[in-house]
């Protein structure tokens, strides 16, 4: 099944290279990756909610894996955004790029998720606490976004204006293809990671049963 997903990805990713001729081509990587990271965090929160309401332990691993993927895509967003900033504004970091700052905050927040998770004993309580954490994260996204937008007023009195990518139909279509490709990549990685983690926990159970 994973192989199938991989083949699908290759098909999805192939036309993307053809689009690289466009100006601001990094847009096609950066924005889908960012959206995918949001999707991962949203998925993690959804699974966390399911865990808290239904009490089904398997949602814990799913939520954890989704956060894992979200952080990876978050780092990619930071990296590509930083490269983009270097190209367009000749600086590696700019505090006036709201998405970038938001991702830094989210990245810090979700990185602490792992610290918290690994400091707890495996079990019901760890599952619950991780779930609550993932839920807070997804609420934090819009609140932080609002906060960063508000902060612009006193940190940067001059609003940074730039002309966004001109969206022609072809660009929009290829953007959608890239988005679908990135989402598919995330889904494949998610399933792969989930399978790995399931085997891992199953193995641990077996080992404990043996001893």
């Amino acid at each position: 099944m994973l192989l199938l997903a991989g083949v699908l990805l290759a098909i999805y990713w192939a036309p993307e290279d053809a689009d690289q001729g466009f100006s601001q081509k990094i847009f096609f990587i950066h924005v889908p990756v960012a959206l995918t990271a949001y999707a991962c965090f949203g998925w993690a929160a959804w699974k966390a909610l399911r865990l808290l309401l239904k009490g089904d332990e398997r949602h814990d691993l799913e939520s954890y894996t989704a956060v894992h993927m979200g952080v990876i895509f978050g780092v990619l967003t930071l990296a590509t955004g930083s490269i983009w900033a270097k190209i367009s504004w000749n600086t590696w970091w700019t505090w006036s790029e709201q998405q970038l700052v938001l991702f830094l905050v989210l990245f810090l927040f979700y990185s602490a998720y792992f610290m918290l998770r690994f400091s707890l004993e495996p079990g019901r309580q760890r599952a619950n606490i991780s779930a609550v954490y993932a839920l807070f994260g997804v609420v934090l996204i819009p609140v932080s976004f609002l906060a960063i937008r508000l902060a612009e007023n006193f940190i940067h009195p001059v609003v940074f204006t730039r002309d966004g990518p001109q969206m022609t139909t072809t660009m929009f279509v290829s953007f959608l293809v890239c988005l679908a490709g990135t989402l598919a990549l995330a889904a494949a990685l998610y399933l792969n990671e989930l399978a790995g983690k399931r085997i891992d926990s199953r193995l641990r159970e077996l080992r404990e049963a043996l001893l």
Binding site: V105, L106, L108, F109, S111, A112, Y113, M115, L116, Y133, F136, L140, V143, S144, L146, A147
Partner: peptide, 9 residues
Amino acid sequence: LFFLPLILP
């Protein structure tokens, strides 16, 4: 670690 990003707003 998690309090500071959370309290940023």
